[in-house]
Simulated scan of single mutants.
Amino acid sequence: MTAYLWTPPAPASLAVRGTDARLPVNRLFFVGRNYHAHAQEMGVSVDKATARPFYFTKSPVHLVDSGATVPYPPETQNFHYEMEWVAVLGRGGFRVPAERAHELIYGYAAGLDMTRRDVQLRLRDKGHPWCLGKDVEGSAVCGEVLPMPGTVLEQGEIVLEVNGAVRQRADLGLLIWNLRELIADLSLFYHLQPGDVIYTGTPEGVGPVQPGDRLHGRVAGVGEVHLTIGPAESAASAG
Rank of each mutant, 00 (worst) to 15 (best):
V88Q: 00
G201N: 12
N26L: 04
F56H: 11
D196Q: 04
Y199P: 09
G221P: 03
A15I: 00
M42C: 09
E161Q: 14
E75A: 13
M148Y: 03
H128N: 11
M42A: 14
W177L: 07
F79Q: 07
V219T: 11
L160M: 10
Y108I: 04
V16I: 12
V88A: 07
C131S: 12
F29S: 06
R116A: 13
R95S: 11
A39W: 03
D125N: 15
L104P: 02
S234K: 11
D20M: 09
L215M: 12
V222C: 06
L123G: 06
L63S: 08
G143R: 00
C131V: 14
S59T: 10
R218V: 06
G205C: 06
L172P: 01
L14C: 09
A170C: 08
H128V: 01
G201V: 06
F79K: 04
I176R: 04
G93V: 04
P53L: 12
I198V: 14
E99M: 02
T19H: 09
R17K: 15
P129C: 11
I198S: 07
A39K: 09
S187W: 05
G239S: 13
T228Q: 15
F94T: 12
A109H: 01
G207L: 09
A68C: 15
H216T: 12
I198F: 05
A51H: 13
D196Y: 08
E82A: 11
V119G: 03
R17E: 15
R167G: 06
V219K: 01
T7M: 07
G150T: 04
A109G: 13
G230R: 04
L14G: 00
L192F: 00
E75T: 11
V25E: 02
D196P: 07
P71S: 13
P60L: 10
L123E: 12
N26Y: 01
N163L: 09
V44G: 03
Y106P: 03
P11L: 10
A235N: 04
V145G: 08
